[in-house]
């Protein structure tokens, strides 16, 4: 199974810490979506805004939280590389 490899060499435990923080952001996003959903209902709970909210929160908030906590981001610069697994796509 291929795994994501950081653009810069980051110790494994720091990568695991970054991943745990990312899971925390997912949980925060889920809680925020539930609360916002109760009040905004279909304005946010629809097939476009709901998933977009999740993607936006995770991709915007996670790097900022990592920076605040002084943890290096294992996904930094990954957009410039070929995605793991794409070499076998087709």
């Amino acid at each position: 199974m291929p795994t994501t490899v950081a653009a810069v060499s980051i110790p494994e435990d720091e990568v695991h810490r970054a991943r745990r923080i990312e899971i925390g952001v997912y949980l925060f996003t889920a809680a925020a979506l539930i609360v916002l959903g109760i009040f905004l209902t279909s304005k946010i709970l629809n097939w476009i805004v709901g998933p977009a909210f999740v993607v936006a929160m995770v991709t915007i908030v996670t790097p900022r939280v990592l920076r605040i906590l002084g943890v290096r981001d294992p996904d930094e610069g990954s957009a410039e590389r070929a995605a793991p697994g794409t070499e076998r796509a087709g």
């Binding site: 209902t41 709901g50 999740v54 990954s78």
Partner: peptide
């Protein structure tokens, strides 16, 4: 120019959204 994180988030998004809307609508 999606990062690894954005790609994974895109993949997981409908799970988070689907799960959350069960609770939002139930609470509503």
């Amino acid at each position: 120019s999606l990062s690894d994180r954005a790609m994974v988030a895109l993949y997981r998004a409908f799970f988070v959204y689907g799960g959350c809307r069960i609770f939002s609508w139930t609470l509503w």
